[in-house]
Design a protein around this nucleic acid. Structure first.
Lengths: 237, 237
DNA sequence: CGGACCATTGATAATTGTCAAAATTCGTGG
DNA sequence: CCACGAATTTTGACAATTATCAATGGTCCG
């Protein structure tokens, strides 16, 4: 992990510009906040926050993506979130003082911005709008969790595969004339841990979908979806 | 559903006293807020909020309990929360303006307190502490959801049964000399929908646990647990 | 006491997990 | 740019678990 203070590179790509919770502030205020922020970089596979650790700052992802997971009783890891550019975490611990409930690990080289507890709390007092923004963002994240819980509770694994493909298509998809290409942020094993099924089951289901012409595997990290409607059908929407 | 305004009964059992988000207010302020609140009652099985409906108020459970669930693609219901005395919901929709993401249905006769959108927002401006309290409470609920996601992702159903028993023991358990008695808020089918398994599987697993002497079924709604340690072992803690 | 509802049990089918081996992909260094 | 080895993914065979269907047994109320 590498730490930069007032990293010059970030001056033109203000990380806080990307964060919805700061969106109500004007450029002047943003510039002031910028001075408070410290930057770090992590290599792929490095851990940003450990479960049970007490983080003392809010962390905003500026570049790259990271997975948040918990270890289950049977020794696997259950992925809770895949954070990418603009997502933040650690805010909960600042209020409750409780240790992190999950581990966050870089899936790619990751650049983050850090705001300390004290600075963050000052911001909340100075800009009350931010608190409301946070409530909204937490609400959104809860909705996502509720959906995940719903889909993982669906016994039909085919549906779940469809749901995860829809989610990733929206977050990591690009469209071209042949359809939508999903740039998967996680491996097959990661998908399995996200879905709560075995690695091999994911392989089999994806192969099956490929045979049916619903998807086309370009390489391990890219999937082409010619017709998104068929995925929605699969997901049971 | 029956509506009371300024219901006399509640005067001595102020529902808002039970709600953590109002805990920073003094009696004087609470009394003022009381005037803003309307009360309703629901019979068992009645729906308090429908999925897709746009609720215009925060609802606080004053007595009884309720389940929040979504209908899954394969026609089952996935229970997300079991709300009981002091829990609140509907706050998210007030900020985002989005329809409810789940249905809430009374599991028993339920008494609720209602605070309209406008009144709630006024409160937030007047008592900024409440916003922080809400962030904390949402954080707690997220942690619960994350745990649920983790446990439902555990492939081992025995573990999951253990986890749900621990959760209910904490929330709905009473202790006596023989051990802990859990007063189940939901039926076997409810437990199945909470766990994402078939009704019959819950029955079988519970029977198995009874044969092993780990639990003792007193009646359909009460389970005696002589030794909680064995449940924790089951849950894989 | 009777009926409606809920829970249990049994038998069987379907699904998924596990283990082992083969195939593919990826990254690195020549 | 290619080749090699490591890592990941896919596939196959089989075992284990759970869902489903059907029937029986209980329990709670009026």
């Amino acid at each position: 992990m590498t730490v930069h203070y007032n990293c010059a590179k970030c001056k033109d790509r203000l990380c806080i510009h990307k964060v919805p919770i700061f969106s109500s502030l004007d450029s002047e205020d943003l510039r002031k906040i910028m001075g408070l922020i410290s930057h770090s970089e992590y290599k792929k596979g490095e851990t940003i926050v450990f479960e049970q650790e007490e983080p003392d700052s809010v962390i905003i992802i500026n570049e790259g993506s990271a997975k948040a997971y918990k270890n289950t009783a049977d020794g696997r890891e259950q992925i809770l979130y895949v954070f990418s550019e603009g997502d933040f975490f650690g805010e909960q611990n600042l209020f409750t003082g409780q240790p992190s409930t999950y581990t966050v690990e870089a899936l790619q080289p990751v650049k983050i911005c850090k705001l300390s507890r004290k600075q963050f709390q000052e911001l909340l007092y100075r800009f009350p709008d931010i608190a409301v923004k946070i409530i909204v963002e937490l609400g959104n994240r809860m909705t996502r969790l509720e959906n995940a819980l719903q889909s993982i509770g669906v016994r039909n694994v085919d549906n779940r595969i469809g749901i995860i493909l829809l989610e990733f298509a929206e977050k990591y998809g690009t469209k071209n004339e042949k359809g939508t290409i999903i740039h998967l942020p996680i491996s097959r094993e990661g998908m399995a841990n996200y879905l709560g099924v075995a690695r091999e089951t994911v392989s089999r289901k994806l192969s099956q979908l490929e045979n049916e012409g619903i998807i086309q595997s370009l390489n391990n990290k890219e999937i082409l979806i010619p017709d998104m409607d068929r995925i929605e059908e699969l997901a049971g929407v």
